[in-house]
Computed example of a mutant assay.
Amino acid sequence: MTSFTDVEVLRYTAFSSDPAGGNPAGVVLDASGLDDARMLAIAAGLGYSETAFLTEELEPGRAYTIRYFSPFAEVPFCGHATVATAVALAERNGQPGDLVFETPAGTVPTTVTVADDGVYRATLTSVEPHVEEIAAADLTEALAALDWPAGDLDPALPPRIAYAGARHLIVAAGTRERLADLSYDFDRLAALMRRLDLTTLQLVWRADPTTFHVRDPFPVGGVVEDPATGAAGAAFGAYLREHGSVPDEAVVTLHQGEDMGRPGVLTVELRAGERRIRVSGTGARIPDGSA
Rank of each mutant, 00 (worst) to 15 (best):
V171H: 00
P109R: 10
Y120W: 06
E132A: 15
P149S: 07
T107M: 13
T111M: 12
A136Y: 07
E128W: 00
T107Q: 11
V119Y: 00
G165V: 02
A145H: 06
D147T: 13
Y120A: 09
T111V: 14
E141P: 03
A144L: 12
A166V: 06
L153R: 01
E133I: 10
A144R: 14
G106W: 02
V171Q: 05
P155K: 02
G151A: 12
R160T: 08
A142Q: 06
A150Q: 08
T107E: 13
A164N: 02
D117I: 12
P129K: 07
T113F: 07
A135T: 08
P158Y: 10
P104Y: 14
D138G: 06
P104K: 13
E133F: 08
A135R: 13
L124H: 04
A105E: 11
T140F: 10
R167Y: 09
V108I: 13
P149W: 03
D116V: 12
E128N: 00
V108Q: 09
V127W: 01
A164E: 07
A115D: 12
A136T: 14
L146V: 09
A166M: 08
H168Q: 06
A150L: 03
I134Q: 05
Y163V: 08
R121E: 15
A166H: 00
A115R: 12
L124Q: 11
T140L: 12
I161D: 04
L139G: 03
I170H: 03
A150N: 04
P159D: 07
L143V: 07
G165E: 05
E128C: 00
D116N: 13
W148R: 03
D154R: 04
V131W: 11
P149L: 02
A115T: 11
W148I: 06
D154A: 07
R167G: 05
L157V: 11
W148H: 05
P109I: 05
I134Y: 03
P155C: 09
P109N: 13
P109K: 13
H168E: 07
D152R: 08
R160G: 01
L153N: 01
D117M: 14
A105V: 08
D152L: 01
V131G: 09
D154G: 05
T111G: 13
E133M: 10
A115V: 00
V119W: 00
I161E: 10
E141F: 02
V114E: 14
A156P: 07
P109E: 12
A164H: 02
Y163W: 14
A122M: 10
T110E: 05
D147S: 15
A145T: 02
A162P: 04
L124G: 01
S126Q: 05
D117F: 11
L153E: 01
A156D: 15
A166E: 05
L124P: 08
T125Q: 13
L143F: 03
L157R: 09
L143I: 05
E133S: 13
P158V: 11
L169A: 12
